[in-house]
Design a protein around this nucleic acid. Structure first.
Lengths: 281, 281
DNA sequence: CTATGTGAAAGCATTCACAGCG
DNA sequence: CGCTGTGAATGCTTTCACATAG
């Protein structure tokens, strides 16, 4: 784990702000669609609408790439597709490995959008010997023992981790040791990686929780209390997910502000169970 | 589509900054792990490390929730778990529907972390009649025709879209019309929703593209040119993914700055193929 | 006269650093 | 005396609004 740095790409990225980089794929997608419909040019306004951002932002983003538009006209679709692709490094082929061929890993392997943008699934790797040799998405699954060899043979620098949480760090360490420098992590764990390695994570559960937060606020406003709402609208049947461990509403260490709002809801809290899809075992 | 507002939650969220909200699930996960190990208290430093953020950020985040810590000691794990759960609205049960039971949809249905945090899969919906009645993750798939009824019967306010891109907007419109106000979108499309509806998206391809961008930069630095790099290191065999449409390096509309760096790489560009996993058809 | 490109202003988020509570 | 909670400083991102190229 060395310096123990975690997450977030190296931040500064040669001029182009991170926020802009994150939107380039969006623009590219919109442009690709236009390209397919043989639309020759777009205005910042139109393209922005198609990408779901506002035009000022889009123009500012593009300004970091250079002056690729034509005043009074707009942007040349084909040319922009090319420029953004190049900027993103999609004009080259990126072999990736997927580690952990459970439900999710298999879905990822089958995912069309993967291959369509310069990413090639070079190998599928799983720790379960029973999986070895089985074809998934037309590729034979290989055993974890081969990991280092596969990385080296294929010049893989991007790895996708779709293992259970418990195995993720270990897999990550091996990937990194074998030369992988970018990791897309689907396991619900924080990965420690040395400097120079980028990790991006995708966590379904987190996304849902963020939605739930806003959803709760909506419900709260609706019910009246337009402010410190939190009025636990117990519309849904209060069947706790799992009656496990920690009982309801634990008492604070010190008598801080007592839990506001309509108190005693059920202190839901299940055993972590954090595992992306089915386990490879 | 009404006002045609798109993406990003309603922004302002009653005091708590959006960035903080997005980190609460992370803290919760770390805390839950501690709770399972029966750790009674944590310092901001320890918890921050476990969640992969720095301690100052964590303390600032928690300060928005209230003063839940004890100076000189730290935070009470159980109490914090409860407070954050409540803040996120996880003390109640959230029924969700998953629309589009292809590869990805099925993986999502099987995803353990789903149910473990207050989210209950109320129904699986697919447009393919051949899927109807089939059990996936122990739940019988229902046909799209039933969508409105299912939403109403179960009081669903959160929907997950895992259909092909082409069907996503239509499904989204139906979900919204039926009363869904939060959507987690896995289809690679920008969804238009009326105000008051939150959309969060998860796009594998986008994440990989962001990684590729940074990866390319790394490769560039390595090879010398520490600045406007873009020196297309053609290590991998230049087998274009799909030799489709648009030829190589289209010419700019006007003679702007000619494409810098080692010019003529292959103008990769396949038929969109944007489909998350297998299609329900 | 239209739509880009961009300084300058405003708004958020992160980090610093330290006062002050237990 | 350690560790939280938080103003103040810094840095990023978004938005505004307009000069300017075509």
């Amino acid at each position: 784990m060395a310096t123990g740095r975690t997450h977030r790409p190296a931040t500064r990225s040669r001029g182009i702000p991170e926020a802009t980089v994150a939107r380039l794929p969006l623009y590219l997608r919109a442009l690709t669609a236009l390209s397919e419909r043989s639309v020759p040019t777009v205005s910042s306004e139109e393209l922005a609408a198609a990408a779901g951002v506002n035009s000022a932002k889009l123009r500012k983003d593009f300004s970091y790439l250079g002056s690729y538009g034509t005043r009074g006209v707009g942007y040349d679709v084909e040319y922009l597709v090319y420029q953004i692709s190049r900027e993103l490094g999609l004009t080259q082929d990126w072999p990736v490995v997927i580690v952990g061929i459970g439900n999710l890993g298999a879905a990822l392997a089958n995912y069309g959008g993967f291959a369509s943008r310069g990413f090639r699934v070079a190998a599928l790797i799983d720790a379960d010997p029973a999986m070895t040799g089985k074809p998934v998405a037309g590729i034979a699954v290989q055993h974890t023992d081969e990991l280092e060899q596969i990385i080296a043979d294929n010049g893989v620098s991007i790895g996708v981790i779709a293992t259970p949480a418990g195995a993720a760090q270990q897999v990550c360490d091996r990937l990194v040791a074998a030369g992988v420098t970018s990791i897309l992590n689907f396991a619900p764990t924080v990965l420690s990686v040395p400097d120079g390695v980028d990790v991006r994570k995708v966590d379904l559960s987190i996304e849902l929780q963020i939605l739930a937060f806003h959803e709760q606020r909506k419900a709260g406003e609706e019910t009246g209390t337009p402010d410190e709402a939190a009025s636990a609208q117990s519309a849904a049947p209060a069947d706790a997910i799992t009656p496990g461990a920690a009982a309801a509403a634990p008492a604070p260490l010190a008598p801080h502000r007592a839990a506001p709002g309509a108190g005693t809801d059920n202190g839901r809290q299940g055993p972590d169970g954090d595992v992306p899809a089915v386990m490879p075992a």
